[in-house]
């Protein structure tokens, strides 16, 4: 539960308190040299699906994402967040670069951990609510 990797950041920080993510990115900006290589940009990711009938694949549509690329003290940082969310994307890219650079790593980790715990609880609650609808019918 306590393990956080750099790859986890892109996922977990989207579920952290957005204000806290922005604040931490600002703090990184005050301590480190941040260069924006790609301003937040709307992009799409094509979604492909494994076809259970033929074991082939097909495309079902695209997901809208906002991605940013930065450099923090010369270390590249990247983020791709769901939907149209430029501020969060840029802040997360800064935190990704900061993690790579070793800047404020412990605070970033703490923020991601909080999000991970909140997700765990939310999914646990959802699972329990869904499981309450499990049914075993009797044949008449």
């Amino acid at each position: 539960m306590d393990t956080i990797t750099r790859e986890d950041l892109n996922d977990l920080l989207q579920e952290a308190d957005p204000a806290a993510v922005l604040r931490l990115a600002e703090q990184v900006g005050k301590r480190a040299t941040v260069r924006i290589l790609q301003h937040p940009t709307q992009e799409t990711l094509m979604v492909q699906v494994n076809d259970p009938i033929t074991h082939g694949r097909f495309y079902s549509g695209e997901v809208l994402a906002t991605s940013s690329v930065v450099q923090v003290n010369g270390t590249n940082g990247w983020a791709m967040v769901m939907d149209d969310n430029p501020e969060l994307s840029l802040s997360m890219a800064i935190l990704d670069g900061a993690w790579g650079d070793g800047c404020r790593k412990e605070q970033i980790r703490e923020l991601a951990l909080q999000a991970k715990k909140a997700r765990f609880l939310r999914q646990q609650r959802q699972q329990a609510e869904v499981a309450a609808t499990a049914v075993k019918f009797d044949l008449m």
């Binding site: 940009t41 709307q42 992009e43 799409t44 990711l45 094509m46 979604v47 492909q48 699906v49 494994n50 259970p52 694949r57 495309y59 079902s60 695209e62 997901v63 809208l64 994402a65 991605s67 791709m80 999914q123 959802q126 869904v130």
Partner: peptide, 21 residues
């Protein structure tokens, strides 16, 4: 959709991996 750049193709979705509701 037609105004957005396509960043790439996501990894394939496997129906068995869907978090079922």
């Amino acid at each position: 959709r037609s105004t957005c750049r396509r960043a790439g193709v996501a990894d394939p979705i496997e129906t068995g991996d869907i978090r079922c509701m």
